[in-house]
Design a binder for these strands. Structure first.
Lengths: 65, 65
DNA sequence: GCCAATTACGGGGAACGTAATTATA
DNA sequence: TATAATTACGTTCCCCGTAATTGGC
């Protein structure tokens, strides 16, 4: 795991939105998505990232949509 | 600051010897020295790295020599 | 229909290896 | 005198940009 991964995770966790998180990080959505996946794979499939982040993203999407 | 820097710092702090630290890290002495310098510059000249590490290295050298 | 995930391709820079020299304790 | 710092050069690899497509709610 690298600090890079944690920075990306924090951004997504704060924004609950990949596009905004990427903007905040001054990178594009594609590398951000890749980085989050790297972190997930690094921590394992049933990781905090996957369970928390994706579910919260789903909820956010449901609430906003 | 990156985790890379901290890993190098820990190795040198544990070994108190650049050659052994580099071996432990599976890198060469030159990049290790550069990395430590980067960390010092990142934290500032009067940093923990400089004051502690180098003085302890000096002591270790004095004691062993 | 948004939003995220994925894919493919390329470029740029960071980090390292190697070798050799210099400084220093 | 051993050890660390520095320099120079080349190379590899990582990360990102871009663009386009696919998948999922």
């Amino acid at each position: 795991m690298e600090l890079r991964h944690l920075r990306c995770f924090l951004a997504v966790a704060e924004e609950l939105h990949f596009a905004r998180a990427a903007e905040k990080l001054h990178i594009e959505q594609s590398p951000l998505s890749r980085t989050i996946k790297e972190l997930e794979e690094d921590l394992g499939e049933q990781s905090f990232v996957h369970t928390n982040l994706s579910t919260r993203l789903s909820q956010a999407g449901r609430l906003s949509g």
